[in-house]
């Protein structure tokens, strides 16, 4: 489920799998498995804390209809 038609996505070519995004997520909506970041759209509130924190600029908010 997206929020207001928006969702957070990860660009895996940019992600350096550091876990900083997880440290700032109060909804526990993300998880790092080895080098693979998972974002749970059900839990994500699109508050953008992770987007602002990502040192690599690997996270972005998109319209939910895009994939």
């Amino acid at each position: 489920m997206s929020k207001n038609g928006k969702r957070v996505v990860v660009d895996r070519y940019k992600c350096a799998y550091c876990g900083a995004c997880i440290a700032v997520c109060k909804f526990n909506a993300n998880e790092l498995i080895e080098t693979f970041l998972i974002i749970d759209d059900e839990k994500c509130n699109v508050c953008k804390a992770c987007v602002k924190t990502c040192p690599m600029g690997a996270l972005a908010v998109i319209e939910a209809c895009e994939s």
Binding site: A16, A23, T53, C54
Partner: peptide
Amino acid sequence: DTTLKLSEIESCT
């Protein structure tokens, strides 16, 4: 509760 606020973390490269 260990969630960090945006003023409580350094984003590092």
